[in-house]
Nucleic acid binder design. Sequence first.
RNA 1: GGGAGUGUGCCCGAGCGGACAAAGGGAACAGACUGUAAAUCUGUCGGCAUUAGCCUACGGAGGUUCGAAUCCUCCCGCUCCCA
Length: 406
Amino acid sequence: MPELTEQQLTDQVDLLTRGAEALYTESELRHRLAWAAREGRPLRVKLGMDPTSPDIHVGHVVQLRQIRKFQDLGHKAVLIIGDYTARIGDPSGVNKTRPVLSGEQIDANAATYVAQLSRVLDPSPEKLEVRRNSEWLSQMSFEQVIRLCSQMTVARMMERDTFELRFKDGVPIGVHEFLYPFMQGYDSVCIHADVELGGSDQTFNNLVGRTLQENAGQKPQIVMIFPLMVGLDGVQKMSKSKGNYIGITDEPNDMFGKVMSIPDALMGNYFELGTELSRAEIAALVDPAQTHPRKAKAELARLIVSQYHGPASGAAALAEFDRVFSQGNVPTDMPEIPIPAGAIPLVDLITLGQFADSRGEARRLIQQNAVSLDDVKISDIAATVTPATGQILRVGKRRFGKIVVQ
RNA sequence: GGGAGUGUGCCCGAGCGGACAAAGGGAACAGACUGUAAAUCUGUCGGCAUUAGCCUACGGAGGUUCGAAUCCUCCCGCUCCCA
């Protein structure tokens, strides 16, 4: 890497920090970039992932996209699978002690991570390093842990509002949860992170990394904080545990439908964080005077689907959506329901198709006028039908199944 | 170690001997209305049963009672105060 001119440095800083909510600190980033270029040494950009559930959602992508920019400038992403950290459970979430994952599970999850991340990041070995924090954390002696803990005070810990709030509300806080920021920060020390990106809920943890690195005689990592994406419900942050997310491996039609179901007020946020459109383009789209909201949202959905599945899939999902929901046609693809030949009570047909967990629920659905077979509504809970292969069972607005007689 | 509380359905939370499958809210599902929006309105929301009804369930195990989520005993978990 050749030395950078002042202008190039400014451009890079600008590019890399676009969309960041906070930056600690800009001048450090500038100097670190210049130093990397001078020494011909790529920066190490840290990215931590919780291995307990393997879905990466579009909220993560806000940061991933920035990391990709680092990669494209010649730097290296370091993915840390927090297999050891996962034993504690993130204090920012609900208070639950998580199960210890087996080595195989972690391997499997790690593999899917890399596969999923490849949709955004450059997965080539010189650009992406994958580590587990059990590598170093499981080797630590108790004495080392004590020394680590001595670098922070209880008052400092209690600054985290997740702790403060829980304490005030009488929600239990395990002492071990205080170790969480240490583990995360110590990861930065062990991998010699130059930069760490995180969501705004990770600010504290990321800054602890700076403290620990400094105490260990390293240059503290530059911390870039990105806004969190709001979940589909329009209220809570997008997260795996809340189930209000769009996974980057979701099927195109699912993904499209999920985007369409968000409240209008959320479109701006999604355009900004979920797409690469410019501010001006977004402004035109979210202004109801210029663009009909429904059209704007469809465009948003198309863009998001295209990002992960390609433009053709984006267009196809749009067309399918119109077909099924605007025109009321049946979808092109739907799950098959294998059934035995002969007459069958309708309630059993519904449970076979897994549209209801119990026969009682199936009965209720029928009573609520939600069930139809080949477009014919059936509202008699005692109905018995003799379906043929190819007939279509529909439950509610969006659940369809094609009958296959065995 | 001493004391005071508390544990309810997916979540929050009321109930404190019968009228309790358990108020209310949230989530979810269905219907209406729509732009499959959101908001709103209506309904459903443990299981089996066509109804009657039966079974399972209020931290766990026993007990008192015709009858217990509600009272008693022990155990377990959690919170707070004092040490």
